[in-house]
Amino acid sequence: MKKKKTIISIVGETATGKTEAAFQLAESLIEKKACAGVDIISADSRQVYADIPILSGADVPDGFVKKNLPGYLPFLEKGLVRLHGVGILAASEEWSLGQFQEFALKLIDRSEIKNRSVIIVGGTGLYHTQLFQTEDRLRVPPNTELREKAEELSVEELQVWLSQVDPARFERMNESDRANPRRLVRAIEQGFAKDSEKPDAAKIKSYNHKIIGIRRESSQLQQNIGDRVRRRFENGAIEEVEKLRKEPSLASGIETTLGFENIGNFLDGEITADECVRSWTVNELQYAKRQRTWWRPIDKVEWADDVKALNMYTEPIC
């Protein structure tokens, strides 16, 4: 029986060095000639946007150049390493879990044919845990007309709408989800989807999915986050937000990117530069806490306290 291909996910809180770890592991695989190349897939729902590389923290190493392959979204390449899913969308385009799944699985299937290793890295937990799930509703594409109509409705009206479209789904929702307009709209969207809009789940191949978690001491993580926010604020994030606020419409992923609202308040003169950095830093720390809480109960994660510890995972995925 043919051995299943192993797909590595690198997860953890923001500012723990996940991206650095992914590139280090990729170079190690190439040095050992374990594969014909490495595809790194970004599992970050904000770094997909081309207009916010600084705000979203899309830390791409020097030397990568943009490339195109027929039938695939543009990617970045340096030597035998390719980086996918960074800077591929315009500011008005929406991006969902289902779209990520379809995008990533297509790359993974191709990598198996081409003898390339795959590393998935990023802070959006659902992208990792749901990647190989076969539930049809995950892959329902966004419905622009429905979303425009939903923008005019209150949370209470969205709740009523969902209870009519998919009462069972509404009953299963917890209070937090019922109060979240984005999740209500997505559930309505999925409830309206026709069978023809739901890709065949049977086409999803079976892979060995190994999840590696990178973690840092609390004090070090706080320092990393504070330093990173300050760098972004001083090196282009303000200009990114200023430019985007002139656009007629923005994707929800842009408007909810950490730092966007804080910088907007700064540009409006409501807070000082120092207050902006402090409030943005607090938001990032809260996000890190949510990420930590998200991963804590998932037993499948193998935690590494140091980036170099990832070298031990080179052999199993060759």
Rank of each mutant, 00 (worst) to 15 (best):
G253F: 03
T281H: 11
N68T: 05
R245V: 02
A34T: 12
E189H: 08
M173E: 05
V155K: 02
R178V: 06
D274F: 04
E20F: 13
E94K: 00
V282K: 14
G259H: 06
F100W: 05
K106I: 00
K78Y: 08
Q99R: 13
F64I: 04
L76S: 01
G79Q: 02
E157M: 09
I8M: 07
S206H: 14
D62W: 07
A202I: 11
A168Q: 13
G213P: 00
G122D: 00
V160G: 01
F132G: 09
E31A: 13
D305P: 05
I119R: 04
Q133F: 14
I214S: 00
S111A: 12
S28M: 15
V229W: 10
V48Y: 04
I8E: 08
S279A: 10
N115Q: 11
K205M: 12
E31M: 14
F192N: 15
G17E: 12
P181V: 12
P297N: 04
V121Q: 03
F100E: 04
N283M: 02
Y72Q: 09
P53G: 08
D51W: 01
S117Q: 11
Q220P: 01
K3E: 09
K289P: 01
H128E: 12
D306A: 10
E247C: 03
G63W: 01
L55A: 04
A237L: 01
E13K: 04
N174P: 05
R183F: 14
T19K: 01
E20G: 10
